[in-house]
């Protein structure tokens, strides 16, 4: 064994460790119901849920009471509705969004979102420009 070979072995094992750490730590894209049941198994893990804003219910955001509290209702791809609590200001394009990705965990009646990505319809798909 030459030093280079030993070094290569060490490098390879670190490489494997790096890949394992990426995939070992990843989380899943789930539905609200799955997030509920998973929360009991691993309470501190965060999950990704793709959902839509439930426009039938009002978005609760009153900055004068608390600028860091937003509560809204969302429906996931399986049709389950859940209240989402987000301890940050309302994302500026929440109402316009057609799809929302929320990252967080289920806690009782609420899904606590740590991060929200809202995807808006492309600006190009707007109706023709009117003069």
């Amino acid at each position: 064994m030459k030093p280079l070979h030993i070094a290569l072995l060490i490098l390879a094992s670190i490489g494997v460790a790096a890949v394992v750490s990426v995939y070992g730590n990843t989380t899943q894209i789930v539905s609200f119901n799955a997030a509920d049941s998973l929360a009991k198994e691993e309470p501190n893990k965060e999950y990704h849920v793709y959902c839509k804003l439930n426009k039938a219910k009002e978005i609760q955001y009153d900055p004068q009471k608390d600028p860091n509290l937003l509560i809204f209702s969302a429906i996931d791809s399986l049709g389950t509705e859940k209240m989402v609590k987000y301890l940050k200001p309302k994302p500026q394009d929440l109402e316009r969004s057609e799809k929302i990705l929320i990252i967080g965990s289920s806690e009782g009646a609420y899904f606590h979102a740590k991060t929200i990505f809202s995807k808006c319809p492309s600006k190009y798909e707007d109706t023709p420009v009117k003069d």
């Binding site: 609590k85 009782g108 009646a109």
Partner: peptide, 21 residues
């Protein structure tokens, strides 16, 4: 903004988050 959950306990998850605004 504490919430009372279904079991009647106060939900204090919010502590983990910084109120940043």
């Amino acid at each position: 903004a504490p919430e009372v959950n279904e079991k009647g306990q106060t939900d204090v998850k919010g502590i983990a988050f910084n109120r940043e605004n």
